[in-house]
Design a protein around this nucleic acid. Structure first.
Length: 367
DNA sequence: GACACGTGGGT
DNA sequence: TACCCAAGTGT
């Protein structure tokens, strides 16, 4: 059923429910296209509650598209620290610059134009077009896919099929609310794990419910490997610590981190930490341990132990050896660095310990 | 179409 | 602990 009947049974109850249950989000006050653009980038594969915090900080620092277009990438990345998928941040900045240069500073309205911008695919194009400009185009995310496939009690082959179905029922007068309502319903009521059908505004129209079969969308099911132990080297000398620079492509491209390696079976954290710095340095011995912290990333999960290593100053020349592979950073400015989550957690533990004088040997006077 | 790309929270 | 999930995109 894709005709007027579906519209009657679905659209009005859905919009009515949304009016009563829409969460109060910062970008829902005025629907500034720049705000919608930022929120949609941040919301890619990321949950609402976490995004709100980052969004507010971002808008405080970059209140307008033009302000963002002028920004340093390093400063933008610092604001993104901890949110993950850092190419989103780089793409958002690049998109802002392109919009200023070739779109006269105005976020494009139509999906095809939006799709030409970096980091914007079919979903984000539809979301920005409909939510920022109230254009009647579908926005198919995981929520829309799940809600629609349950509603129709049939699998959809791909997002284009879902979009075709939605194009048939999306109301011309309220596409902004309709698309948000569909996603909001999926996030709050028609959830993946345990849908609350008894309070769902669409339960009487839902074929999945009436047929007793609530199909679940095939999950991407990223197979995680079990948690493995790893060790990071917190190598220090003269009040500075060493950070390894990651390659310009791939995981955490171009970011800095404490050098780390997975620990081999029966290997100690100290040994693994030494292996991590072996390409650059020798050291005199482990003087302490921080953590462990748990760190999950793209199919992996590690328990990361930080091993404090003191550089052997009479045998190493810190600056020259490090230059190609990393940098020495003073403890005082370590919190300014943009680090992947695992290193960030270790840094926070480290700075806490340093401030409480748990590791006096790390300060310049201690060396 | 498969895979890389982060992270934290829920169960 | 381990698995699943989240307003996807680029290659």
């Amino acid at each position: 059923m894709t005709g007027p009947a579906a519209k009657e049974a679905v659209v009005a109850p859905l919009l009515s429910w949304f009016r009563r249950n829409a969460r109060d989000l910062p970008w829902r006050r005025g629907y500034d296209p720049y705000h919608i653009l930022v929120s949609e980038f941040m919301l890619q594969q990321t949950q609402m509650d976490r995004v709100v915090v980052y969004f507010l900080e971002w808008i405080r620092r970059f209140p307008t598209l033009k302000a963002l277009a002028r920004a340093d990438e390093a400063e933008a990345l610092k604001l993104w620290e901890g949110l993950g998928y850092y190419s989103r941040c780089r793409n958002l900045l690049a998109a802002a610059r392109t919009i200023v240069e070739t779109w006269n500073g105005r976020v494009p309205e139509d999906p095809a134009s939006l799709m030409t911008l970096p980091g914007i695919g079919p979903y984000t194009a539809g979301a920005v077009s409909s939510i920022a400009y109230n254009r009647p185009v579908p926005a198919v995310d995981a929520n829309a896919r799940r809600v629609v496939s349950r509603l129709e009690a049939r699998p959809f082959r791909n997002d284009r099929d879902v979009a075709s179905f939605l194009a048939g029922i999306i109301p011309d007068d309220e596409p902004r609310s309709f698309n948000q309502a569909l996603m909001e319903l999926g996030a709050l009521v028609c959830t993946a794990a345990r849908p609350s059908c008894d309070v769902c505004p669409l339960n009487s129209a839902c074929k999945g419910r009436s047929s007793g079969a609530i199909p679940l969308t095939p999950s991407a099911a990223v197979m995680r490997r079990p948690t493995r132990p790893a060790a990071a080297a917190v190598l220090f000398a003269g009040g500075k610590v060493f950070l390894r620079r990651r390659p310009d492509a791939g995981l955490w491209a171009g970011m800095s981190e404490f050098p780390w390696e997975e620990t081999a079976p029966d290997e100690s954290p100290e040994s693994a930490a030494r292996r991590a710095i072996a390409p650059f340095y020798e050291e005199t011995g482990a003087v302490g341990v921080i953590g462990p912290v748990s760190h999950a990333f793209t199919g992996n999960r590690i328990r990361l132990t930080g091993v404090l290593l003191r550089l052997r100053p009479e045998r190493e020349t810190p600056e020259s050896l490090a230059r190609a592979h990393g940098r020495w950073v003073p403890l005082e400015t370590l919190s300014d660095e943009t680090l992947p989550a695992g290193s960030r957690k270790l840094r926070d533990l480290l700075l806490r310990d340093v401030n409480s004088r748990s590791h006096p040997e790390m300060t310049p006077e201690g060396v």
